[in-house]
Structures are given as structure tokens and as C-alpha cells.
Design a binder for these strands. Structure first.
Lengths: 233, 233
DNA sequence: TAGATTGTTAATCGATTAACAATC
DNA sequence: TAGATTGTTAATCGATTAACAATC
């Protein structure tokens, strides 16, 4: 019997990534939905939006699957996780399916987002229109630069990061997007954890420890680039 | 063009005892590697970089797995896809494993990237330092606005999009990042397909048809937001 | 009704994890 | 040598796909 002694030869530096914190797998009391299914739900939504714009009234799982490059059984199964949205012999009513998916994803209500870090990427996101189309409203930005504090960008107020907790709480922010230098990310994530914010969209290329009750979602361009690099070798 | 068409030969002294797993696919030509494995490779690289900065010389699959929140067998299996990088009874030499992974991913050479669309996101990416750290050099930008053409941004020349094909070919661009309005995306992707560019990093929230020989990689913020929305309901 | 298509169960496929001989 | 840890095969787990009774 291999008595694998847990003997970390690594001196644990503070900057090291870490196993994902907290709730995972089946320890959740909530039913677990594969994250791939959730992502496909969002993608179905995009196809349905186009169909609705085209005045298409109904669609079969087979046709929807073809639009997405999937198997029709997978489409039916994905949708059946969340309800019986189809009609046998008919298919799915585009408009109602779309509305149902919005409800399931929670994109039928508005989310309030704050940006921490008003550098280039942060500023770009403030003027980026794509969020508002998905029901996300950027309600404020933060920066360490006192010259930026007090100004507006695209109508969005920028505050000094000293006021972070106060402002996030007062304006009931749901999501924070982190666009700061790597060193600053973890302390800011910890502070965000004190405020009732539910999720962090992390653009910083480092792994963050999630404060309790906060979901962290990484958007890591450098990792994407590295994957691309492999395939174009 | 990156002439490096060479097989990913294992620079380890040991010969591969077996062809890498995944060979028995429909196309016997190139072995197929799960994209999840490729992504983890990039993430291992990040952990190894930190370890190397900390002067850590060796690491076991178990310790590496813990840093990533994975199973140690998975780490060994992921690495073994591409060669025998470890030493039984010892583990992996951090520096050489990191070098090997860079070679496998192709991040040991410089990639040349052009940005199409010098709007907010495009401009932000031009000043974003994260790419250069991963060996990606942004060599030019394009825009439809003739006032932007001819100018520099962060030392990067911006050309008019009329010159797209000419410039991409002349400067041997490897990757194009698309940060344009949705309507413009597909025609531009088609034009890019004529130039020898190997990959498109698509920031536009719509599904593009890949021109032959071009790999498209979507970075879709609105989909990310919708997934987040589901979990914070 | 006859044809079409759903929701769901069973079969298949692929990816993760456990186990262990090889070996440093 | 004795202990540790690899690479690899076998077992398990989960996700995709096929099949089909239900039903509009």
C-alpha cells in the first residue's frame, strides 16, 4: 500500500495559486448543473435572438442543434434540465423558449456592475456597449488615481478606491470587474468580499482566492493566447 | 509565417515508448489533444513560473495538482501526452518542465498580432502589457476611421483597413484580434482568410465562419456575464 | 389519423481517478 | 538499499449520443 506521505517540497509563496475555494461538486445542496450546459444555454439564447429578429416562430431541436454544431439530443437534454419548454410534434416556440432561457439564466433582470481599475481595459469596458445589451449596467468605476476620482467616463462616475466598500454597499452592486495590476488583485477581492457583491469578473491574469459567498469568474486573455499558440504551431 | 512546422519532438533523451494517446482518432494524421488538456498546460505554466521565481527546483505531480486543484494522476497524464518530463522518485524539474511546456505550447517563439478595430477595446489591447509578457507582439492596428490611420498608439502603427491584406501579408502577421462592430466581423474574417494569418481572436459577440485554414477563438464577454448571472441568482 | 418531434431512458464515448510496476 | 514518485493501465465517473414511447 503506497503510503503517499503528503510532503510538499514547495515552499508556499504567497503569490501561488491555490485549489478552488469552497463550494464545489456535490457538497452543494443546490442541484448541480454542468457549467458546459449553462454556457450552451447562453449560446442558445443568441441563436434564438437571431431567429426572433427574423420572425421565425418555431424551431426543432434538430434545427437548433445544427445552428450550434451540436447533437439534437443534447439540445433537448440541456433544455429539459430546466423545464418542459417544447411541444412534441411541433418543436419549440422561439419567443417563449427565449424568454424561458432568460429567466433561467437570470438575464431577465438588470445586474449592476462596478469596475475596479480605470486603466485602459477598465476605461474600454466603460464605453463598451455590449454589457448593456445583456442587461448589465455599469454603475461606477474605481481607481487609485485621485485625478480620475470624481470624473465621469461615458456618464459613469469614477470614485477613489478608498471609498470602495461604502459605494459598493450603498449602490447594491451585484458584480465587480477587476481590471487592476496583479499585485492589487487579491487584496481588492478580499475587500469586495465584505460588501455583498455576489461575483467577481477577474481580468487579472492570476488566480484569486474567492472570499466566502463570492463567485470568481476568470477572463484570462493570456491563457487564451497560449491555447491559440498551440494550435497554430 | 512561422515556418516551424516541425513535429513536436520530445527533446527528452528518453524515447516515447508508445505513440501519444489520442492517435486512434478518425484522422490518423495529427493526434488529437483535448482542448481542456491544452488549457491546463497553459495553467501549469503559470504555476511553474511562480515556482521558478521562488527558486523552487523541483515539484511532484501531487504538489502541482494541489496548486491547481486537480488530481495528481491527471497532472501526470496531461504531461505524459507530450513526453516524459519527470523523474521517478524525484518529480519534475521546474525549470526544464516549464521550458518543455513552452515549447509544446509554442510560446517559446514570438507571435505577431494585428488588431482590427481601433475602438475602445482595440485601443485598450494596444496598451495592454499582458500580451508581450506571453511573447505576443502587437505589430499593427487597423481602423475604418481615416483620421486614425497613420497615427501611432503606444508605438503601434494604425493603418486604414483598406490596406489590410497588403499589410498583413507584408508583415507576416500570425494572429488577428477582431474588435469591430458585429456587422463588420464576418467580411473582415473572410478577408483575413486570404492573407496567411493562422488564427483570429474574436472579441465580437457573434459566431463567425472560419475561412479555410484559419482557427477562430471566441472571447465573448457577454456569454461570460450570462453564465455569471445564472450562478448569482 | 399520420407525421413529426418531444422528453427520457439506455448505450456509448471520453475524461478523470485509482492502482501499481518500473525506476530513480 | 528503502522511499518516493513517475508513466501507464484499469476502473470509475460523467457527458454525449442513440433509441423510442409518449403525444401534439
Amino acid at each position: 500500500m503506497p503510503s503517499a506521505k503528503d510532503k510538499g517540497a514547495v515552499n508556499n509563496a504567497h503569490a501561488l495559486p491555490h485549489p478552488p475555494a469552497g463550494l464545489n461538486k456535490k457538497t452543494d445542496r443546490m442541484p448541480h448543473f454542468p457549467s458546459a450546459v449553462i454556457r450552451r444555454l447562453a449560446l442558445y439564447g443568441r441563436v434564438l435572438q437571431i431567429l426572433e429578429n427574423n420572425r421565425t416562430e418555431k424551431i426543432s431541436s434538430k434545427a437548433l442543434a445544427e445552428h450550434m454544431g451540436l447533437n439534437s439530443a443534447q439540445v433537448r437534454k440541456d433544455l429539459a434540465y430546466f423545464g418542459q419548454f417544447g411541444v412534441p410534434g411541433y418543436g419549440y416556440h422561439v419567443r417563449s423558449l427565449r424568454a424561458n432561457l432568460k429567466r433561467v439564466l437570470g438575464t431577465d433582470r438588470q445586474l449592476r456592475l462596478a469596475l475596479i481599475g480605470a486603466g485602459n481595459l477598465g476605461m474600454a469596458l466603460m464605453t463598451y456597449g455590449g454589457f448593456s445589451r445583456q442587461g448589465v449596467r455599469i454603475v461606477m468605476g474605481f481607481d487609485v488615481d485621485r485625478r480620475k476620482a470624481g470624473s465621469l467616463r461615458n456618464g459613469i462616475p469614477i470614485y477613489h478606491v478608498d471609498d470602495l466598500e461604502k459605494r459598493l454597499r450603498r449602490d447594491l452592486v451585484d458584480i465587480v470587474a477587476l481590471t487592476v495590476p496583479s499585485d492589487a488583485a487579491q487584496p481588492l477581492a478580499d475587500r469586495v468580499g465584505q460588501t455583498g457583491v455576489s461575483a467577481i469578473l477577474n481580468f487579472v491574469p492570476c488566480r484569486l482566492m474567492a472570499p466566502p459567498g463570492v463567485r470568481i469568474h476568470d477572463v484570462d486573455l493570456t491563457i487564451e493566447i497560449e491555447c491559440l499558440s498551440f494550435y497554430i504551431k
